[in-house]
């Protein structure tokens, strides 16, 4: 049973209080959306969960193990994987090598044929098998995003945090990523999806967290959150202007 327990996280950068007493929990294979305006602290929260930065106070438990003071590579082994807001493939390594890294890092005695077969399976799923020996730098931006998702499959974590996977992505590719999210979720992994695209969030997620400049102002089913006056005030805006919101953000993300 997957269980993430975040308690009273605080993070300051100098005078800037980026996360204020953030607490929430994840139980089982949930599919959760994390939204908030630019600079709300979503990426910072991801970085803390992942161990890349340490919180000033608060605790994080994953499956009963405390992870907030662990280095990232330990956290990855305990079972939390994440993607980066800006794509970070290993550019001068081949696609297959990109996939080997997490598999071999997690399992010390991994069998090479097994790993290779699994990698090829993952590539099939991402429709990228023919690119397996290309250097990652030769891939398009979208393909590199897929590759990053593929690496997570190879890591095989319990919880996956996707930091804006839809930024700068064409609708066809978006379909693949949708399918990826659904499939991985059905396989029993919890997913936290960070995005500024409300329609994707609302169509995929069954639970929504809203972060507003460090405060976790809402946590619940999408419909409830949508109508929550606090959220409407702080974030979603008065009217039904979701669409304009989306396009704005898309611009920012692709920049």
């Amino acid at each position: 049973m997957i269980e993430l327990e975040v308690k009273n996280l605080n993070k300051r950068f100098g005078g800037l209080h980026v996360l204020k007493d953030v607490s929430f929990g994840i139980k089982g294979a949930e599919l959760i959306g994390l939204i908030g305006p630019n600079g709300a602290g979503k990426t910072t929260l991801t970085n803390i969960l992942d161990g890349a930065i340490k919180p000033n106070s608060g605790t994080v438990y994953l499956n009963g193990q405390r992870i907030d003071q662990l280095p990232p590579f330990e956290v990855a082994k305990v079972g939390l994987g994440r993607t980066f807001q800006v794509t970070r493939s290993f550019r001068r390594m081949t696609v297959l090598e990109n996939l080997y890294v997490p598999a071999l890092a997690k399992h010390v005695a991994a069998d090479k044929t097994e790993v290779t077969n699994k990698a090829l399976e993952v590539l099939d799923f991402l429709t990228m098998r023919h690119l397996r020996n290309e250097y990652a730098q030769a891939l398009s931006g979208g393909q590199q995003k897929l590759l990053e998702l593929g690496r997570l499959l190879m890591l095989d974590p319990d919880i996956i945090i996707l930091d804006e996977p839809f930024a700068g992505v064409h609708p066809t590719l978006m379909e693949i990523i949708y399918e990826y999210i659904r499939k991985v979720n059905e396989e029993g992994k919890a997913i936290v999806l960070i995005s500024h695209q409300m329609d994707s969030i609302f169509s995929l997620c069954k639970r929504l967290l809203v972060l507003n400049y460090g405060d976790l102002i809402a946590d619940g089913a999408p419909e409830d959150v949508k109508n929550d006056p606090v959220v409407v005030d702080a974030y979603l805006g008065k009217d039904d202007d979701e669409n304009s919101d989306t396009t704005n953000n898309e611009k920012q993300n692709s920049a």
Binding site: N10, R12, G14, G15, K54, N56, S57
Partner: peptide, 9 residues
């Protein structure tokens, strides 16, 4: 400083 939740820079 970290434990007391203060600015550590």
């Amino acid at each position: 400083y970290l434990r007391k939740d203060l600015d550590t820079s």
